[in-house]
Write a protein that binds this DNA or RNA. Structure first.
Lengths: 238, 238
DNA sequence: CATTATAACTTGTATATACAAGATAGTAAA
DNA sequence: TTTACTATCTTGTATATACAAGTTATAATG
C-alpha cells in the first residue's frame, strides 16, 4: 500500500488490457482522474506518462489521452521478460531442460562481455526450451557467482529471475539487447530441432541490476520460424 | 530557445556521448545541476528521467546517477529511426534506389494493416538500400495519401520522414515494430543480393502520428548477415 | 578496537500554484 | 451566412515546499 502513482498506473493499465477502456476512446481528463483517485495532478501525470511510455496511451495536448491497442499476448514481448514469465502468459505447454550447470572461469571473450576478472567464478547454464514437444530455443546463460551464490538444477528449471528477485531480493533493472542472425553451431544442431533451417536467431542480453552492476550475459538462440520480437518505440525528440 | 528540460537533456546526453562524462562515473547531484542550470529540481529530474529512460544513465536512490555506456553507432538503433537517418550516422556509402512509386487502392490485408477503406488511396513505395555496392535491404512502404498528398521519386530517394516532419510539419510519434524471419519471396530474390541465404529478416513497422492516427505501414526486408537490432529495455515494475 | 548512533548527503514521492499552449464550442460582429 | 473573437475546456512546463528513504562518512559509545 504505497506508491500512489504506480497503483494508479496499474489500475488504468489493467483496465486498458481488460477492455474497460476501448482502444481509440479517450481516458478521463487529468482533472477528472484527480478527483477519482483523490490525489494531485502531478501524481496523475506521473502515472499517465508511464502509460504513454509503455504504449498504453497517447497524450495529445489540448485534447486528452487516447487509449491505444495494447494487447500483451505477443511472443517475446519487448522489455525484460524471462522465458518462464513468457511461458506463463502463453500457457502451460512449455518445458525447460537443463543441459549444463557448472562453475567456470571466464575465457577472454566472456571476461569482456561480463566485465569479469579471469580468476572470478561464473555460473554457466545451458537450457533447452521445448514448446509443444519441439526444441525451439537454446539458452546459454552466464551469471557472476558473486551475485548469485547458490544455483541448483531445480532453480534453473524454474525461473532464475524469480529466484533472484524474490529469494535473493536483488532488483533486476535494465538490459542491453542485440538481435542478429547467424549460422547454427554444432551445439545448436545438437540441442535444437532445426528441421533443415540453416540460420538461428541470436538474442544477446546484457542484464544489469538496479545499481548498474552487470550480472548476467545471456545468449538465446532461436529456431528462425518460431522467433518473433515485438516492440513499441517512441521517436525521441531532438 | 524553449523547453528547458529538453535542452538540459540534450546537453547532458551530448556530453555523455561525446565523452565528457565517463561511463561508470557519477553525474553531478540533482542539487548541483539545479545550480549549474539555474532551474528547479523538478525540471532537472524531468531531464534525468528521460536520460534514464533512453539508457544514458541509471539512477540509484541515495547514491546518484551513474553514467552508462551509451554509444550510438550500432546498426538499426532501437526506436524510430529511418534508413536515411541511419545512413547519415554510418557514413556516406549508402545509396537508395526507388523501384516503384504508385498510387493504389489497398487490398484486404493492407486494409487491415493500415485501417484504410477499400476506395481510399495509398502510396506504395519500393526502395532498395545499397550499402557498399550490395543490395542489402528491400523496403516496402505504404502511406495514406490523406496524410501525404504529394510524393515524388526525388523525395523517396531522400528521407520521407524528413519531408513529412519538416516540409509537411506533421509529428511522427511512435511505432509498433515486429521482427520475424521468413523465406525470401520472388521479389526479395529479384531485388536483393541474397548470396545463397535462404532467409530474410522482416521488420514490420506500424507508424503513428502525434494524434495517434496510423499513417504508414512498412516492411523492411534485410539480408540476414547484415541485420542487427540493438535495444535498451527497462524491466517494468509490477 | 569494534559497534552504534548521528548527521549530512543522495534520490524518491506527493502536493500546490501559476501560467503557457493547443483544441473546441459558442457568441457576437461584419 | 460567414468570420472573428472569447470563454473554457484540455494537456504542457516551471517553480516551490515538505517529507520519505537509501547511502555514506563521522562522531560517540561501549
Amino acid at each position: 500500500m504505497q506508491n500512489k502513482y504506480l497503483q494508479i498506473y496499474k489500475e488504468i493499465a489493467d483496465q486498458i488490457q481488460g477492455g474497460g477502456f476501448e482502444p481509440g476512446s479517450k481516458l478521463p481528463s487529468e482533472h477528472d482522474l484527480v478527483e477519482r483517485f483523490q490525489t494531485s495532478r502531478e501524481t496523475i501525470r506521473k502515472a499517465l506518462s508511464q502509460l504513454a511510455q509503455n504504449g498504453f496511451i497517447q497524450k495529445v495536448q489540448g485534447k486528452g489521452s487516447i487509449v491505444l491497442d495494447a494487447r500483451k499476448f505477443d511472443f517475446p514481448v519487448s522489455g525484460l521478460v524471462s522465458f518462464t514469465e513468457l511461458a506463463d502468459m502463453l500457457g502451460g505447454n512449455a518445458v525447460t531442460e537443463v543441459e549444463k550447470l557448472a562453475l567456470i572461469h571466464p575465457d577472454s571473450s566472456l571476461q569482456g562481455a561480463l566485465q569479469a576478472a579471469p580468476d572470478s567464478f561464473i555460473w554457466e547454464v545451458h537450457r533447452i526450451r521445448e514448446i509443444d514437444g519441439e526444441r525451439i530455443i537454446f539458452d546459454k546463460d552466464f551469471f557472476k557467482k558473486m551475485y548469485v551464490d547458490n544455483l541448483t538444477e531445480e532453480i534453473c528449471r524454474g525461473s532464475i529471475y524469480d529466484y533472484i528477485e524474490n529469494e535473493l531480493g536483488m532488483a533486476i533493472s535494465f538490459a542491453r539487447k542485440e538481435i542478429t542472425v547467424e549460422a547454427p553451431t554444432e551445439e545448436d544442431r545438437n540441442y535444437l530441432d532445426l528441421e533443415g533451417y540453416e540460420t538461428v536467431v541470436v538474442v544477446k542480453n546484457f542484464v544489469y541490476f538496479d545499481d548498474a552492476s552487470l550480472f548476467q550475459y545471456t545468449e538465446s538462440r532461436h529456431r528462425p520460424d518460431k522467433f518473433k520480437f515485438v516492440d513499441f518505440a517512441r521517436r525521441t525528440k531532438a
